[in-house]
Design a protein around this nucleic acid. Structure first.
Length: 265
DNA sequence: CTCAGTGTTCAGTG
DNA sequence: TCACTGAACACTGA
């Protein structure tokens, strides 16, 4: 369930659980798709005995800083979580790797649909795919004028540009729709055609939406009532916002887009 | 049984 | 070469 806020919530769980501990044991599922560029066996061997110094995130990617390289980096794809538990019998379904810390906690990553990836890299931040990411709205959102210049170079619909990870890292389908709804912009508009005032709204709303979602630890029940988020699912023609506006569903940039024609001109 | 889906990648097109 | 689009990927759940 990973866009930036879910990834950040997952990173924080990993941080609380792992930082300062030594990895006593590693168990890996035999999955050559999710383990990317490294065999599950080699992955386990490289992590065992290491101490976890810190955790980091950029966009939807998370990686661990260990006392010795290489370091693991993770992406959840279309679904997956981190889990912490105290008994091996509580190991969750679809687990791909499980760490046992010297504090006695088990820490696992799950990935039911297998579109996630686990890598082992000497310097994850400076190697693909993380090195290819654009700005992270939480870590290094550009100032207004730079943001405008970036948009002016793009001829695709604004919805497609927001989804492009080499533009904004961590923005996924619902965040892109939420931002355009709150900024009152038609998702089909070409990025290059936005006025400076509109581009500024997109930039500022993006920051506000991401900050709020992260502030509530990506807990959907605590997202503000007025967000489109709560009403966008289930593409039925009678869906409406909290204020009773009709929600339309259109495919843009290859993804289902929920938007409100009455508000987004 | 069919199909959409909170994502990324890559082949194909202009 | 660049920018962009659409299909493929793997699997669950409605």
């Amino acid at each position: 369930m990973p866009e930036l806020p879910e990834a950040e919530a997952a990173r924080r769980l990993a941080h609380r659980t792992l930082v300062g501990t030594r990895i006593e044991a590693v168990r890996t599922a035999d999955d050559r798709i999710v383990f990317c560029g490294v065999s599950p066996r080699a992955f386990a061997a490289r992590l065992r005995g290491r101490r976890v110094i810190s955790t980091r995130r950029r966009g939807k990617y998370i990686w661990f800083v260990l006392d010795k390289r290489p370091w693991p980096s993770m992406h959840f794809g279309m679904g997956g979580h981190f889990f912490v538990y105290q008994k091996p019998s509580d190991r969750p379904p679809y687990w791909k790797m499980e760490l046992l810390t010297d504090r006695g906690d088990y820490f696992a990553m799950t990935n039911p649909r297998r579109l996630g990836r686990i890598r082992l890299q000497d310097d994850p931040e400076h190697e693909p795919p993380i090195s290819l990411l654009g700005f992270d709205p939480l870590l290094d959102l550009p100032p207004v004028w730079t943001f405008c210049e970036l948009l002016a170079r793009r001829r695709a619909p604004i919805k497609a540009v927001l989804l492009d990870q080499s533009f904004a890292a961590g923005v996924g389908n619902w965040i892109a729709d939420e931002v355009l709804y709150q900024a009152r912009i038609d998702p089909r508009r070409l990025a290059v055609d936005l006025t400076p005032a509109e581009a500024r709204r997109v930039r500022n709303v993006l920051r506000q939406v991401v900050r709020k979602a992260v502030a509530v630890d990506a807990d959907k029940d605590r997202f503000p009532r007025e967000w489109l988020f709560h009403h966008r699912w289930g593409r039925n023609s009678r869906a409406v916002t909290a204020r009773g506006e009709r929600i339309a569903h259109t495919v843009i940039g290859g993804r289902t887009t929920a938007w409100v024609p009455a508000v987004q001109k």
